[in-house]
């Protein structure tokens, strides 16, 4: 009898815990499901302009005018072919990539070199120099246009890639110094002391010990520089006068007239301009996330 009672009790406990578990799982599923639904909806809303841009890029002008929000009924690949020829796509992409890569290399080396002593030396002078560097971030870019133009003209570098590289490097140095100084302050001094005991000079310590540790923050800095160079219109239009040397964004904006827009050119041009950036971000997504979260947890 007792055995039966115990068994039935165990069974009832089992069934009640099972039902509890089931309800917990069910609750969890509902919670998870609604979270997934919510996140998907937010993602869809955030991506809707991009999706719209891609769909529109394949439609004819007449279709867009008749039904601006409709999906393409036929894919007009000719839109892309026309734009690629009109904007010298390969040339402008190569120009932009070249200028961006050189700028990233220069900014990361120069600003990390400047940041190293600023992060390590504790004096009023170093604080002042640090503030001086940061001031560069608050100068409105338009206020610097004429002095920069004079500077580049006097160097004889107008209408050259070097002009753009110099302007972008100078423009991003304060940001680089700011990033690196904050990051280097978190690197333990013991590492440098160990290297010093091994007889390394300060420059060697920087190059072999510090610089390799800056990878994550350099990734983040590279994103900022890439976006800055990629989206800039003013500097290429000011310093470059030969069409073949233009970077991508001025080439895209050519399709945006003063009083009219040709969607069959503007949308494909916008897609083509974002494409290399998307490829880079997908290829380097791991490093980018590492860079963004670096220093978040100590």
């Amino acid at each position: 009898m007792d055995g039966i009672t115990i068994k039935s009790k165990v069974e009832s406990v089992d069934s009640s815990s099972n039902s509890k578990l089931a309800s917990i799982f069910c609750m969890r599923n509902i919670k998870q499901g609604s979270m997934i639904f919510l996140m998907s909806a937010v993602t869809l809303i955030l991506l809707s302009p991009v999706i719209y841009m891609v769909f529109m890029s394949f439609r004819s002008r007449r279709e867009i005018m008749m039904e601006p929000l409709a999906l393409p009924t036929k894919f007009h690949f000719s839109n892309y072919l026309n734009v690629i020829a009109d904007m010298n796509y390969l040339g402008t992409v190569m120009n932009t990539v070249g200028v961006t890569v050189v700028t990233i290399i220069l900014v990361s080396i120069l600003s990390s070199l400047a940041a190293y002593p600023l992060a390590r030396l504790r004096s009023k002078v170093s604080s002042l120099v640090y503030v001086f560097f940061l001031l560069g971030m608050v100068i409105p870019p338009f206020a610097a246009l004429t002095p920069l133009y004079l500077f580049i003209r006097d160097l004889g570098l107008l209408d050259t890639y070097a002009a753009l590289v110099i302007v972008y490097t100078v423009g991003h140095l304060p940001l680089g110094v700011f990033f690196y100084t904050s990051f280097m302050k978190a690197i333990p001094k013991e590492l440098e002391e160990a290297a010093t005991l091994d007889g390394a000079s300060p420059l060697k310590i920087y190059w072999y010990v510090i610089f390799p540790m800056l990878k994550p923050i350099t990734g983040t800095l590279a994103i900022f520089i890439t976006l800055g160079v990629w989206n800039d219109v003013v500097n290429p239009l000011l310093f470059i006068t030969t069409n073949e040397k233009l970077t991508i964004m001025p080439a895209v904006l050519r399709f945006l007239g003063t009083y009219s827009v040709d969607p069959t050119k503007l949308f494909p041009a916008a897609v083509l301009a974002s494409l290399p950036l998307l490829v880079v971000f997908f290829a380097l997504s791991k490093q980018i996330v590492n860079g963004m979260t670096a220093g978040a947890v100590k």
């Binding site: 004429t146 003209r153 003013v234 001025p250 050519r254």
Partner: peptide
Amino acid sequence: VKLNYMARNDMVTSIPARMQAGNPP
């Protein structure tokens, strides 16, 4: 002829700088 095309709004920012520098189009 070297045609340097830019949107009207971009002329507002880039041409004055070149004029002030004495090196306009």
